[in-house]
């Protein structure tokens, strides 16, 4: 049977999981990436029209012809930059979403665990959820910090709060 304290902790973890999941929706910049690609499409279409105009005014209006050509060239540079930005942003977004998903999964497991039956979530269980080396670096830095604290008389890794509860 789950004690009131355990139930309260489970609730806290469930609330935190929901809050981080909500945060994920807010940081997801997929819509922005889509907008960048659409902007690139529209620019390409407009550039095509300007190029056609340049062709038509080649003899009748030299100044307009020159301006149109300059605009087409500027558009090519701008579109390349936009597309590189969209591609990079899509990857960064993917990285952020996967990292946040990892935290949500960990919190959901903590929320669902019956602490008397099994350890809630060991550092190794947590590490198995990681999707990048950056996460592992942070993990190792925290473990090292806890180990140092432990060697100076504090709880150390025990403070992660799972070993004491395991059978």
């Amino acid at each position: 049977m789950t004690s009131p304290t355990d139930a309260s902790e489970n609730l806290v973890h469930a609330v935190l999981a929901a809050q981080v999941a909500e945060l994920r929706n807010r940081v997801d910049s997929g819509a922005m990436v889509e907008l960048l690609w659409r902007t690139s499409d529209v620019l390409a279409e407009l550039s095509g029209l300007v190029a056609e105009l340049a062709g038509r005014c080649h003899h009748s209006n030299a100044e307009l012809h020159s301006k149109c050509n300059a605009a087409v060239e500027a558009e090519i540079d701008l579109r390349q930059s936009l597309e590189s930005l969209a591609f990079e942003q899509a990857q960064r977004n993917d990285f952020i979403c996967q990292t946040v998903d990892c935290v949500v999964t960990a919190l959901e497991r903590l929320a669902a665990a019956d602490v008397r039956e099994s350890p809630r979530l060991s550092p190794n269980d947590l590490a198995a959820l990681y999707v990048s080396e950056d996460q592992r670096k942070v993990h190792h830095a925290v473990v090292r910090r806890f180990s140092l604290a432990g060697s100076s008389g504090c709880d150390g890794v025990e403070s992660l709060g799972w070993e004491r509860r395991g059978k």
Binding site: G30, V33, E34, W37, E83, A86, F87, A90, Q91, N93, D94, C97
Partner: peptide, 17 residues
């Protein structure tokens, strides 16, 4: 192959271009 629709769209665009 990617489970992120944003990534699929971006990769498709770069490759199609």
């Amino acid at each position: 192959l990617d489970d992120s629709p944003t990534m699929v769209m971006s990769l498709s665009r770069v490759l199609k271009n």
